[in-house]
Computed example of a mutant assay.
Amino acid sequence: MKTRLVRKGVFTLIEDVREAVTPPSDGFYWIDADVDELASLQPLFGLHDLEVEDCLSEEEQRPKLEVHEGHYFIVINSIRFDDEEIFLRALNIFLGRHYIITVTRQKINELRSVKPILLQEQVDQPDVFLYHLIDRVVDNYFLVGDRIETRIDQLEEDILMHTKKSHLEEIINLRSEILWLRKALGPQKELLHALNKRDLKLIDNQLQHYFGDIHENAVKIAEAFDTYRDLIGNLREAYQSSLAGRANEIMRVFTALTTIFMPLTFITGIYGMNVDNLPGAHYRWAAYGLLGLMLVVGIGMFYLFRRKNWL
């Protein structure tokens, strides 16, 4: 657990977290804690038992906003895209008048990337910190969306160039990830709408309008994932069409080969009969002549098929 006093975006480490109970003369306290450290924070800041239970739960938490007299409890999901798999990681936030507490089970990249923004903007209030943190979380969805779109484009190119059975498994897995994420975005949009429209005393009225911009971004993200879902459907159709095309190509080759061998089979069938008076059967060079005839017929039919683009 790290306790920082934030003044105009500048961090000062505080050794004893109990100092954060008393409001500072200027700035605010940022307490970055793991879920296991909540037990020591709960009595100091009056955190509700159910909120602590939500943080400790290993089950996936629904994004939400809970309003209490002295603080707000916010749950929002951070997104990661590793090894072609999408992960959502809960970011639990307690917002007070002079402090903000972030509680995570795994590392959240946005907590690290927001620090330069705080310094650049000279952030001095916890609600402004909350805005920039949530803005970073939502912006990261755009980055993941771009990676998914790139993966879809790459899959489409691979399918058109050379279809493999593994492509179908990739399509199914990616589609299930997109549908699952699209479903998870619904509660996230509701949370951002509440931060924008709800009467919240711990968030400046003017700042709440900026949450409206984040909500619009969340709507755009949801629409983008709807588009990705449709593109995945098109990919599956392209995969099936490619397989059907390959099957037709193989059947065309087999049909052409069968057609070429039909006259050859006819010739060998006639001269393979147990009849003595076949024309030319008793000539010395008859076998070589038949082989030559078969070769000429086979080559001639092959070039005929090539000329007509049947092969």
Rank of each mutant, 00 (worst) to 15 (best):
D124T: 13
A247K: 04
E53D: 15
L56G: 00
S40L: 12
S78R: 02
K164M: 08
L47G: 01
L179S: 12
I267N: 00
L95E: 11
E216C: 00
I203D: 03
N92H: 15
M294A: 09
D34T: 07
R18P: 01
S25V: 14
V6P: 02
E110S: 12
H71A: 04
F266Y: 09
I267F: 05
L264H: 05
A247G: 00
A194Y: 07
Y99P: 06
F261N: 11
T22A: 09
T255I: 03
V6S: 04
E149T: 14
N309M: 04
G292T: 15
I178A: 02
S57F: 00
I86P: 01
K115A: 09
Y29A: 06
L192G: 02
L264I: 09
L5Q: 11
G186N: 12
V21M: 10
V138F: 08
V67R: 13
G300F: 08
S113C: 03
N173V: 08
I76E: 00
S241C: 06
T255G: 10
D16A: 07
P43F: 03
F11L: 15
I260A: 06
F11R: 12
L207R: 11
M161A: 14
R105H: 13
I178S: 04
V138G: 03
F45N: 11
F261R: 07
L5P: 05
H48P: 02
L293I: 13
V275N: 03
L291I: 15
A256N: 08
N92Y: 14
F45W: 07
E19W: 01
I93W: 10
L174V: 02
I101V: 14
E60F: 09
K220P: 00
S57T: 01
G298Q: 09
L143M: 13
